[in-house]
């Protein structure tokens, strides 16, 4: 359906914007390495099911793209364009996010099985993975426009999945409680950002926190 397609496209675009920003400016200033590491963890734990579960060629290719691009971005950030200045303000304690997501995945899952727990873990972790990045924005108080486009596209992906879930609930009777709940949590975390993005970036102002 259209929401799902738009969501996936937005997800794809967000990664391309980020890669393009890094490659062109040859800098990772203002981008949180911690958030990017969390995404590697999210994609690895959710998408490694492609080794034992086949959905479609589209699904497989997308999963491969997200796993490889996220690892590549972390590689660029650590080795190629290392930025100690940015690292110094990237101080969000992610071990709590990882630990909390792990505990929640043990409590909430569709089956107490390795693959299902990993899937649940990835959903919880994804819902909070942007926090180090937002935290960094808050500390610096401003961001490059491209960085804000990246965060917007990334947030739009999960937000667009919400109407997709409603659509699938009506048309197929399919309800994925875990994905829906964590998707809503994720969207709420982004809501503040969306608001500022709408009021400043889209009207041509610099991204500056009030």
């Amino acid at each position: 359906n259209i929401f799902r397609a738009a969501g996936d496209l937005s997800h794809l675009i967000s990664i391309l914007i980020l890669l393009n920003t890094i490659q062109k400016s040859r800098s990772i200033a203002g981008i949180s390495l911690k958030t990017q590491i969390l995404y590697v963890l999210v994609f690895l734990t959710r998408y490694l099911d492609l080794t034992y579960r086949y959905v479609s060629i589209y699904n497989t290719l997308m999963k491969l793209f997200f796993i490889s691009s996220s690892i590549y971005i972390v590689y660029l950030m650590i080795y190629k364009f290392k930025n100690t200045e940015t690292e110094q303000i990237d101080t969000f304690p992610i071990e709590y996010l990882i630990g909390g997501s792990f505990i929640l995945s043990l409590i909430f899952n569709y089956k107490f099985q390795f693959g299902e727990i990993l899937w649940s873990f990835s959903l919880w972790l994804e819902s909070v993975a942007i926090l180090p990045q937002l935290f960094m924005l808050q500390r610096t108080g401003e961001a490059r426009t491209l960085t804000t486009h990246y965060i917007f596209a990334l947030g739009a992906y999960r937000t667009l999945y919400i109407p997709n879930w409603i659509f699938r609930w009506i048309s197929e009777g399919r309800v994925d409680y875990l994905a829906i709940f964590t998707g809503i949590v994720q969207t709420i975390i982004y809501s503040d950002f969306f608001y500022i993005y709408y009021h400043r970036v889209l009207k041509g102002f610099k991204f500056e926190l009030p």
Partner: peptide, 10 residues
């Protein structure tokens, strides 16, 4: 029989 969700989304 318990129903499991098919993980067909990204």
């Amino acid at each position: 029989e318990e129903q499991t969700i098919v993980h067909d989304e990204l």
